[in-house]
């Protein structure tokens, strides 16, 4: 008999977005305040895990049709690419660049190539965490 978990599912629908927004905030704020790609990634993963708990793996797969192994690979390539890009500008490997720009809507903002690297970290952490949980969860 399947229990009725309508309350869990309803709450999840709301909470997931809060967690996701918080995760994205933590990720972007990482360069100035506590946070960063690692924690952001873990929090994002926990949002997905919550979805998996409230529904089931197959449903979550149809909601988020993402191949997490590919995601991990993309993250690694992004991180490595950011680090390697400096070679093109004839500076040592892993030299970051940053500057302040005036963007519409955000005003004066610093854009930092470390952010791209952090995005790689973020993708890897999300990919790895969900891969592990999914793999173990699907195992009989």
């Amino acid at each position: 008999m399947r229990t009725n978990d309508v309350m869990l599912q309803t709450a999840t629908k709301v909470v997931t977005f809060i967690i996701l927004v918080f995760a994205i905030h933590i990720f972007f704020a990482g360069h100035y305040t506590p946070g960063g790609g690692f924690v952001g990634g873990l929090l994002t993963a926990s949002a997905v895990v919550l979805l998996m708990l409230a529904f089931d793996i197959r449903t979550v797969k149809s909601i988020l049709p993402i191949n997490y192994v590919t995601m991990t690979a993309i993250g690694l390539i992004l991180a490595l690419g950011t680090a390697a890009a400096s070679i093109v500008f004839d500076v040592p490997f892993f030299t970051h660049a940053y500057d302040y720009f005036t963007l519409p809507l955000f005003g004066e903002t610093s854009l930092h190539s470390a952010m791209l690297f952090d995005a790689g970290v973020y993708l890897v952490v999300v990919g790895v965490t969900i891969t592990i949980i999914q793999t173990i969860g699907e195992d009989e």
């Binding site: 305040t33 960063g36 690694l76 991180a79 490595l80 470390a114 970290v121 890897v124 990919g127 790895v128």
Partner: peptide, 30 residues
């Protein structure tokens, strides 16, 4: 470093090399 969070700047900028291979370790674990 162009940042305020020392820990994160060390992780991604000063000593980003370590982080690069730590995420590689994670990938290998997965």
């Amino acid at each position: 470093g162009g940042g305020g969070n020392i820990v994160n700047v060390i992780l991604v900028d000063y000593r980003g090399f370590d982080t690069l291979f730590e995420i590689t370790v994670l990938g290998i674990a997965a």
